[in-house]
């Protein structure tokens, strides 16, 4: 696997860790942040951060994976 792909996959793992595997740790109402119960605040924050994480993955792939000859883009 190319370096850029590995970095991108690591970044892609972040939403899965925060939005799936961390759920047992955040299943609570307090503290209330910005008016939202904690579990909803947590989920919403990571959903909003996901496009930024993917954008970073996009840039990283571009930087470390130079386009190969003959590849359709």
């Amino acid at each position: 696997m190319r370096k850029g792909t590995i970095y991108a996959l690591l970044l892609g793992a972040v939403p899965f860790i925060t939005l799936v595997f961390a759920l047992p740790l955040v299943n609570r109402i307090y503290p209330i942040i910005l008016g939202l119960p904690f579990i909803l605040f947590w989920i919403l924050s990571w959903v909003i951060l996901t496009p930024f994480i993917l954008f970073l993955a996009y840039r990283v792939e571009k930087k470390f994976n130079p386009p190969q000859g003959g590849e359709e883009e």
């Binding site: 991108a8 899965f16 939005l19 990571w46 993917l54």
Partner: peptide
């Protein structure tokens, strides 16, 4: 949805 889009990226 956020998980689905992340997968779709790859």
């Amino acid at each position: 949805g956020a998980l689905a889009y992340t997968l779709s990226f790859f």
